[in-house]
Design a protein around this nucleic acid. Structure first.
Lengths: 339, 339
DNA sequence: CCAGATTACGCAAGCGTTTGCGCAGATATA
DNA sequence: TATATCTGCGCAAACGCTTGCGTAATCTGG
């Protein structure tokens, strides 16, 4: 039971290795009969091509990388599903890298990609990502990059986002219509385009309704749920007038609810809450949560599709298109009007 | 600006490529001074080794595969984190494959691993996985496999599980102590060892408390939340006496709550609910959920550690050890006693 | 001071595929 | 019939790195 490789197939069939290789690739240069024979023997011998050898030979790895901050948030979990689905369908493999919201890790990871390990990258940048030299550098090496959800503005490549500004605007309007007057916005990054846009939508809604935008109505949260809860408790305690909260990430929902519970601020009677949220549990929260849910799966799928299309066309430069998939606002009890 | 590879470094330093290679690997065969020079030039030229070439040359890919059914469940999301953490720390890369609970996909995926694409596999088998020939075959090819959470009993390799029997036992006892007498157990697979064990624990608790074990108290659920909700509604409607539910997977919690809501069965007054659940949202559900939470992150970490340890030792066969990390029962309102 | 051990490096044969080019023989064109 | 055009396949050079083995030079101890 020797190693069975292309050479072995060649000997067995009295063909050259190049013919085998081409036959397996369904090359037009090989006759139908020969292809047939090769395919059959390959199946019979259970031949598995060595991916490293083909990657080396062809300098194409059939592998893409997914670089994301975390995988806790349902958003990223769903997005991975979408990405994996199209990759698997097209014979690509998916490497996962987590940056844990740290720029340095993101840089190191992307830097390593210059080796040709992956053919392309789908990325959602970390909360710390201000500088984008590492991304530019990677692109300069010819590795296509597609953003999804969290994009860096100063890199002009394809990006798949959702209508953040509008969603935040809608959410804010919704709260205002429900008679909220003092709205907090919970953010995890002010410089992320996504953060800025959500703030912008929030701001726009406020001014359109004649409400003042105050910079300290924006609460900068971190990664630790406990710390965030404490921060929110302190904020709510210090400002009893707050009657509405917009949480821009799923993770902050728990801290928000807990803070309200702790201070006996009733949702929605005292404080109304809306959150960007993608888990099905929204409907069974206490109270059920009004959500802005992003089309996470679709976004992942779209991003991967764009990337793979670019990979199929060797000379194609990924144009700076921006695919925007709409989020949807689902109204539940956390913003119910009272009485 | 040529391609910079090992040969280039060699020319630049008047050394042979083998010396460069060994220097970069910090081989004992190379003098400290030379190593220094190599390292410096490598850094200066921003040298990135070609992973496919080294994989081909060494027949080691520095890559492991994670094969899981889904990534929605917080459990798997957390486990991925654990796996990725140790892999990244040890210079390994992580390929993700989703089986979507389908045996056929799992077989195809594992079959492809015989090519040497990955050095090892961490897997949680699909709900359909009864036959394990594909896993055995992979191991026979010399690819080490470590199970986590969902293991196949008839493959003797390392596995990282939690104390499923005991947890289910505890959960059941808890419900019985809370005066439940008619308990439903929601399962997604009867033949998965994990499913069987949870059923066993449930059964044991019942009999120890003099309650009858009825086979149709076990509800076989599928993958579709809507369908599951309907199934549960029908079951609850048909059997009004049910006063306790044990859900063995996170995903089923929502369907359970929704079914209860729809039928106006109050939790915990009419029906008490406990679920295997790993998301932080447990505390903010309506009502807050009594959970059995598995040490998902730790389990992933442990599984990856075992695998990598085995990979470090070329001749090591992965012994059939079973690392059991305990789950914890956290009592919340969904099982509160009344009055 | 010399045999044997040790240190530091080079040679060159892989690893398994891919792919540009070349070249017969068969077919089509004029 | 001679020339041009396909068709189908083989030759052999990459691709970039690893590693077994060989070998000078240097170092030990008796």
């Amino acid at each position: 039971m020797d190693k069975i490789n292309i050479k072995r197939l060649a000997e067995e069939l009295n063909l050259s290795t190049s013919t085998i290789s081409r036959a397996l690739q369904d090359s037009y240069q090989i006759g139908a009969a020969t292809k047939q024979r090769v395919l059959e023997l390959a199946k019979k011998l259970n031949y598995q091509p060595n991916p490293h050898a083909s990657s080396l030979g062809s300098s194409r790895s059939k592998t893409i990388a997914v670089v994301i901050p975390e995988v806790f948030d349902s958003y990223f979990a769903l997005a991975i599903n979408g990405i994996e689905a199209v990759a698997q369908a097209q014979g690509y493999h998916v490497l996962i890298y987590l940056t844990h919201e740290r720029l340095q890790l993101e840089q190191e990871i992307l830097h390593a990609f210059r080796s040709g390990r992956v053919d392309g990258v789908v990325i959602s940048v970390s909360a710390e990502t201000t500088s984008t030299a590492h991304i530019q550098a990677l692109r300069a090496q010819g590795v296509p990059v597609v953003f999804f959800d969290r994009a860096a503005d100063d890199v002009d490549t394809a990006r798949v986002t959702t209508n953040d500004t509008e969603s935040a605007y809608q959410a804010t309007c919704h709260l205002i219509e429900r008679r909220c007057t003092t709205l907090l916005l919970l953010s995890i990054s002010r410089h992320l385009s996504i953060g800025r846009q959500r703030i912008a939508g929030y701001r726009q809604a406020l001014t359109e309704h004649g409400l003042a935008f105050r910079d300290d109505d924006i609460v900068d949260c971190g990664q630790d749920p406990e710390a965030n809860r404490e921060l929110l408790e302190a904020t709510l305690r210090a400002r009893p007038g707050i009657d509405g909260i917009i949480s821009t990430v799923e993770m902050l929902t728990e801290s928000t609810y807990q803070a309200c519970y702790a201070l006996h601020r009733r949702i929605p009677q005292d404080v109304k809450v809306v959150s960007f949220y993608n888990s099905r549990s929204a409907a069974i929260l206490n109270p059920s949560l009004t959500t802005i849910s992003q089309p996470a799966f679709e976004m992942g799928k779209t991003a991967a599709t764009l990337l793979l299309k670019a990979l199929r066309n060797p000379k194609s430069t990924l144009v700076a298109e921006n695919v925007v998939l709409p989020s949807v606002l689902t109204i539940r009890n956390s913003t119910a009007s009272i009485g």
